[in-house]
């Protein structure tokens, strides 16, 4: 028994030594190759003379035309609206992929529900959050929602916009779920689905309705472009917030457990 153990240990050690040497060679090779690549890229970028600067004065009339004065928002939603539409769709698809991959127990959403072999312990002691956490959440969440709304609205004329507001909403949702993980079972799944679809749907509808005004897809009617952009931004912010929260939960609520939360 003892001899067998030491033999095994020796073999393990020699294996380890072999792997170590191979690892060392591999690491040297990759770092050398990557150092070459980085040097080459550095040379290529620094050799390139800086292009002619686009002056803000020359572009200002274009931004006024777009309906918002913040240049980044104008580019995101008006000039390159296609990119942003596709981006919202990518976020939507990521949510879809996660929902199709995994299910979570809605009474305890921070762990996977499916594996029966690994019994899961509840993360939080007691039914509700502790006093400090509860108070913090009670004060912080409304404030975060308010600031998210402000950021989304302020995107028209200064730094801010749908993504920043949506990210803040997502942070608020994550905080809420961390504070009261069981609460997710009280949210009807249809509402979550509606919230996720809302932003992309509004974006697409606005894009298509531009045809009715004689423009192309996402070519907003000229006098009132700002209000269209604001509508899109609020829809996108709400959707981004809800999608980020569902990404954090990491799976769809298990419908079997959702129905049986009260009776076992």
């Amino acid at each position: 028994m003892n001899g067998g153990l030491t033999g095994m240990k020796k073999r393990k050690q020699s294996m380890k030594g072999k792997f170590k040497r191979k690892d060392w060679q591999f690491a040297t090779l990759t770092s050398l190759l990557i150092a070459t690549l980085v040097t080459f890229l550095c040379w290529a970028i620094l050799k390139e003379p800086p292009g002619e600067d686009l002056t803000a004065e020359a572009l200002a009339p274009l931004f006024v035309q777009s309906g918002v004065t913040s240049p980044v928002t104008a580019i995101l939603l008006n000039f390159r609206g296609y990119d942003t539409l596709l981006e919202v769709m990518v976020l939507f698809l990521a949510g879809l992929g996660i929902w199709s991959q995994a299910t979570v127990d809605p009474t305890n959403p921070l762990v996977f529900s499916s594996p029966a072999t690994h019994p899961t312990k509840p993360n939080f002691h007691g039914p509700g959050p502790e006093l400090i956490l509860a108070t913090l959440v009670r004060i912080l969440i409304p404030l975060m929602v308010l600031v998210a709304g402000y950021l989304t609205w302020a995107g028209g004329f200064q730094a801010g916009g749908a993504f920043q507001g949506g990210a803040l909403l997502g942070g608020a949702g994550i905080l809420l779920i961390l504070a009261e993980p069981q609460r997710i079972s009280t949210i009807p799944p249809a509402l979550i689905r509606f919230g996720i679809v809302l932003g992309p749907a509004i974006f697409l509808l606005v894009g298509v309705s531009c045809f009715g005004y004689g423009g192309n897809f996402l070519q907003y009617p000229q006098p009132g472009a700002g209000s269209w952009l604001l509508l899109i931004e609020f829809g996108a912010a709400i959707s981004i917030g809800i999608t980020l929260t569902t990404l954090f939960v990491g799976g769809r609520p298990d419908p079997k457990r959702l129905k049986g939360t009260d009776q076992p």
């Binding site: 995101l76 990518v90 990521a94 949510g95 992929g97 916009g161 990404l247 954090f248 990491g250």
Partner: peptide, 24 residues
């Protein structure tokens, strides 16, 4: 030039969604 800013904003959101999918 504000176009790269818009592209990077898009990229940040895309990278968080791909990260979430990869983690799952």
């Amino acid at each position: 030039d504000h176009v790269p800013h818009a592209m990077v904003l898009t990229g940040i959101v895309i990278s968080v969604s791909t990260t979430a999918l990869a983690l799952t």
